[in-house]
Design a protein around this nucleic acid. Structure first.
Lengths: 365, 365
DNA sequence: TTTTGCTGTGAGAACGTTACCACACTTTGT
DNA sequence: ACAAAGTGTGGTAACGTTCTCACAGCAAAA
């Protein structure tokens, strides 16, 4: 046998003096085999340093024991933490994990998915970048198990994992109102959706009584903001909404600065995700305002540093790792054959109070 | 043809009225084919929604166009950023990316590698958790292209990407000395290596004139610390070295607190990586010390928040994304057949001054 | 005794591609 | 005009597994 070539089942079989079928059964752990032959085969395999070739196995079984993950951007802590959860669960089940990023663009998403499908993944975890059309996802869902994470897609009935964005935001804003805040600013990347502008979105939400179909998390968080205002009878002032056009720190900083400088500005800022928070932090820093004396801040999504800066930053923490774990588990169940109705897992968030929100009930500034 | 089964080359060939060989040549883009037949095949493929099966292709070509990445922990910003760089380069070349984490343990590393090898990856990018033995890596390197990232392994001559840790740390500490600091604390997870204790490491470094073989980055950074002291004629005080036993924020915080509270403590802290920095930040925060009045801080590894906290944190920034990109490019070249001598890429770091280091030349506190 | 069922084994097909070869037809070079 | 080289095509053997059979032995059940 050629020394520098990898040993195959046939090599092992020859060495052990059995048929390839028998060697295959022993090595692959299926079918029957006697203790005697088993020892023979195992010894031969050991001697030749046999390592199974998953490729060949997959080709015939139709299962690769590999799943794909399409993230917006894996370097963001949000996706990185989710990824870790996914990876942990997959690891215990002997699954591999192929990752790609869509960069939140449909093109990238389509490209990623094709690459993954060519590699014959058994299932897909994806954070879709479009909550409306996503024709490619609907088609794919018919043949491949799929779990959505963070976001849902209208008309795509598959498993999904996320949090109650609107509810969490509503509670958060209600708390702000309860502590005396009446001018609550929001910094959000409200990705252009089916709504022309922020105003028409408000209109839509009110028309539907605060409930609406799938939409981006940031829109859902905005919806919570609206509901809290309406419930408290506090009028909405859309000039307090800083809508960031591109998903970048720099643009966020600019938008937040503008918001902070405007006359009769907000007493508190609510940021809708980690990147918005970082941009806003930079804006506050550069504007020279003191937290929480001059401006309060509360952030959706918890980040490492929020607990050890001064003041600590109040936040709504999503269980990111658990989201990943849950998604992975759901997907594996689907791959194993579970064909029950789609489930929408809503994991609870945690509200962290750390001192960046000032109680201004007795202190008009 | 069965509708719900994926179309194969044979299906396309039948539909187009050509042989599977011809269809294969057109679809696979190899060998000769006439314009006429090509159109026929392409049309049939389009109609049947043909998607190639990489598995079958790989089985015969022996190339999967997939590479593996073994990180310490993908959720850490360090690895996440590197991963992004790797992913970007791979994407442009049509390569897939399988990830696993070793959790910095040899067991995990071995397990990860076996999983990856069974999936027949074409190459491996790894941040090895052992800089000494790593027998499994040496064996693997004979058959599989491999690039080391962040760390090197003694006796493993393969491509690697990293920064000049000792040099960067030395420059950093020299700057601290130049600004008047004489009691420079260090917070580091000095993973147990071939040295019994910190003292014998110092001895070894001096014996070798400040040069030594492969070791963990944190040890290299410590080496820079030693070299800067020796060059300036400043005596080393090992009581200023907080050696963290486990790689955890909590333990780091405890160790740093202890260092801060000891009599005749440091005027500045040098932290050797992101996690050390976070733990140290927490310690400073909880101790109630003011930065930079009471204590200065400079960190190895730059993190997002360092620019927008008060004061900004001075740091040594590694080009993490570029490290990933470089590693990926080197690996792809190896896979393509480059068998030149191993290269050790040393990328330049950036020193960020942001205000967390106080100049105490004229101000004894 | 005959049946039934379980255990164990090997030969060979199958998975979906590319590699290799044989062959035919064209073009080029002398 | 003839060889040599370049095109285009189809048949079929790989790649390394698992799957499907057929068949044999042996025990327990009828």
């Amino acid at each position: 046998m050629n020394e520098n070539r990898k040993a195959t089942i046939a090599d092992v079989a020859r060495e052990a003096g059995v048929s390839t079928a028998t060697a295959g059964r022993v090595l692959g752990g299926y079918g029957y085999s006697s203790g005697e032959k088993r020892d023979l085969v195992l010894k031969a395999a050991e001697m030749l340093g046999y390592q199974p070739n998953q490729l060949a196995r997959s080709l015939i079984t139709g299962q690769t024991r590999t799943i794909g993950f399409v993230a917006g951007d894996i370097q963001s802590p949000f996706f990185a933490k989710i990824l870790r959860g996914v990876s942990d669960v997959l690891d215990t089940q002997g699954f591999g994990l192929l990752i790609t990023n869509s960069d939140e663009a449909v093109d990238g998403e389509v490209h990623s998915i094709r690459l993954l499908m060519e590699k014959q993944i058994d299932g897909l975890i994806i954070s879709p970048c479009d909550t409306e059309g996503a024709k490619h996802l609907k088609k794919l869902a018919q043949t491949t198990p799929m779990v959505l994470i963070d976001r849902q897609v209208a008309g795509l009935d598959v498993d999904s994992v996320g949090v109650d964005n609107a509810g969490a935001a509503e509670l958060c804003v209600r708390n702000l109102i309860d502590t005396g805040h009446e001018r609550i600013g929001m910094v959000a990347e409200l990705h252009s959706g089916p709504w022309k502008d922020v105003g028409s979105f408000v209109h839509m939400v009110r028309a539907r009584g605060g409930e609406a179909g799938p939409m981006y998390p940031s829109w859902q968080r905005f919806m919570g903001y609206i509901r809290a205002h309406d419930a408290a009878g506090l009028p909405l002032d859309l000039s307090l909404i800083a809508r960031v056009n591109s998903y970048s720190i720099e643009d966020t900083k600019i938008a937040a600065k503008q918001l902070l400088r405007q006359p009769n500005g907000p007493t508190v800022l609510f940021t809708t995700d980690g990147l918005m928070t970082e941009g806003t932090m930079a804006a506050i820093f550069e504007t020279g305002l003191q937290m929480p004396e001059d401006i309060s801040l509360i952030a959706f999504d918890d980040l490492d540093w929020m607990s050890f800066v001064r003041p600590g930053i109040d936040s709504i923490a999503q269980p990111r790792r658990k989201m990943g774990e849950t998604a992975a588990r759901m997907l594996i169940e689907r791959i194993a054959g579970n064909d029950g109705p789609p489930r929408r897992e809503m994991l609870p968030v945690r509200h962290n109070e750390r001192g960046s929100v000032r109680d201004i009930r007795n202190a008009r500034r």
